[in-house]
Simulated assay, not measured.
Amino acid sequence: MIVKHHMMAIIYHVTTAAAWNTAKEKGSYEDTSLAKEGFIHASETQQVDGVLQRYFAGKTDLVKLTIDTSKLKSQLVYEWSPSVQEQFPHIYGPINLDAVTDTEAL
């Protein structure tokens, strides 16, 4: 018998506790970048520290969302970021709360 292991792809998004609390009230999460750029920035495991250093240095009250990409209702696209020479996951739409499997205060 062959058992296929379903490997769920996990990505992360860093936000403020306030924004996450708003999302819980609304029923979905939208970052300010969604209105400005058309997508929500996300990261793979090895990219989170760099993102924290580049964009969140000195900020407190942060939350890291763990997102199961197989549960995302919005489109997920991996796109090249010329500034850091890496591909990053971008979510083109709101994040449905049931795709967020864990949250961690940073």
Rank of each mutant, 00 (worst) to 15 (best):
I67G: 00
A57S: 15
R54W: 01
K73L: 12
A9D: 13
E30M: 08
E25D: 10
M8Y: 10
E86L: 11
Q85T: 07
K71I: 04
Y29I: 02
G38M: 08
S70D: 12
E25G: 02
V3L: 12
N21G: 05
K26G: 00
P94F: 05
H6D: 11
A9C: 07
D49P: 07
K73F: 06
G38K: 04
L65R: 02
Q85P: 00
I10D: 09
A17V: 07
L62N: 04
E104F: 09
K73H: 08
H5S: 12
G50H: 08
P82S: 11
V77P: 02
I91L: 05
L62S: 05
E104A: 10
K59D: 07
T103D: 08
F39L: 08
E79H: 09
T32K: 14
V84S: 10
A19D: 09
S33C: 06
T103M: 01
Q85V: 03
K59P: 00
H90I: 05
D31G: 13
R54M: 07
D31N: 10
Q46F: 14
V84Y: 07
V100P: 03
T60K: 15
F39G: 01
T69C: 08
K26S: 09
S70C: 01
L106D: 04
L65H: 02
K73I: 10
G27R: 04
D49A: 15
A42T: 10
K4N: 12
K64A: 07
L34F: 06
D49Y: 07
P82D: 13
G93V: 04
L76I: 12
T103V: 14
L52N: 05
A105L: 13
T60W: 01
T32H: 11
K4I: 14
A19H: 09
G58R: 10
T60H: 11
D61T: 04
Q47F: 03
K26T: 09
V77H: 13
G27S: 05
K73T: 12
T101P: 01
T45Q: 12
L65N: 02
Q75P: 06
G50L: 11
Q53G: 04
F39Y: 15
K36I: 14
L76R: 08
H5R: 13
E37R: 08
I67K: 01
V63L: 07
T32I: 11
A9R: 15
F39A: 09
A9H: 13
D102A: 14
